[in-house]
Amino acid sequence: MARTTIEDVAKAAGVSTFTVSRALRGMDHVAPSTREKVLEAAKNLNYTVSKAASSLASGQTNRIALLSKDRIAGWFMGELMDGLYDVLNPARYDLLVYRAGNIQERSTFFTNLPANRNADALIMTGFPATEQEEQALASMGMPIILVNSPDTDCCQGSVAINDEESETTLVRYLAAIGHRKFCYIGRKEPLPGSQWGHDTRAVGYRNTIVDLNLTDCGMRYIDLADPLSVKQTVATILSLPERPTALCVWSDHYALAVIHELRSNGVRVPEDISVAGHDGSDVAASIKLTTMAQPAREIGRIAARKTLDLAAKKTLDEPRTIIQTVLTPGDTTRPIAHE
Rank of each mutant, 00 (worst) to 15 (best):
D223Q: 07
P227E: 13
G197I: 08
R243A: 09
Y184A: 09
C248H: 06
R206Y: 15
P227Q: 07
D163F: 04
D151N: 09
P244F: 11
P150A: 01
D223A: 10
N207H: 10
A175M: 05
P192S: 03
V159G: 02
K188F: 05
G218A: 06
N213W: 06
G178E: 11
C183L: 09
S239F: 01
C154A: 15
T168Q: 10
G186A: 11
A202L: 13
L238T: 06
C248D: 03
T169E: 07
S194W: 13
A176V: 00
T245V: 10
D163Q: 12
V203Q: 03
P227L: 06
I185A: 04
E189A: 12
D199V: 02
T208W: 03
S229T: 08
A202H: 11
E167K: 02
A176H: 12
T208F: 04
D153T: 15
D163E: 13
T245L: 01
T233S: 13
R220W: 03
M219H: 02
V203R: 05
I209G: 00
P227H: 09
S166R: 03
L238M: 14
Y221D: 00
L191S: 15
I185G: 04
V249H: 08
C155Y: 13
L170D: 03
G197Q: 09
W196G: 00
H179S: 09
H198F: 04
I209V: 15
G178A: 05
D151Y: 05
N162G: 02
C217Y: 06
L214Y: 11
L214E: 05
L214P: 01
P244R: 03
W196S: 02
K231E: 14
C155R: 10
Q232S: 13
T200Q: 12
A176L: 01
T169W: 00
T208K: 02
T152L: 13
V249I: 14
Y173P: 04
G197P: 02
G186F: 06
C154R: 12
P150F: 09
A202P: 00
T152M: 08
W196P: 00
R187Q: 14
V210T: 14
V230F: 07
C248Q: 06
D211Q: 15
D211N: 14
A235M: 02
T215L: 10
N207D: 14
P150S: 04
E164L: 03
V230Y: 05
A175N: 11
G193P: 04
S239P: 00
S149L: 05
L228A: 12
N148Y: 08
T169D: 10
T168F: 00
K188A: 13
A160K: 07
L224S: 07
C154T: 09
G157H: 10
L228G: 12
C248I: 15
Y205G: 04
T200N: 08
K188M: 14
P241W: 04
S149N: 15
V210H: 07
K188V: 15
Y173W: 15
L240D: 07
Q232M: 12
Q156D: 12
L214C: 03
C217T: 06
N148W: 06
D151V: 03
D153G: 00
T168L: 13
A175C: 14
I144W: 00
E242V: 15
I185R: 01
G193W: 10
P150W: 09
V159F: 08
R201E: 01
A175T: 11
E242T: 15
I222E: 04
K231C: 00
V203K: 05
L224T: 12
G178R: 10
A160T: 06
I185Y: 05
V203F: 09
L240A: 14
N148G: 01
E242Q: 14
V171E: 05
G186V: 11
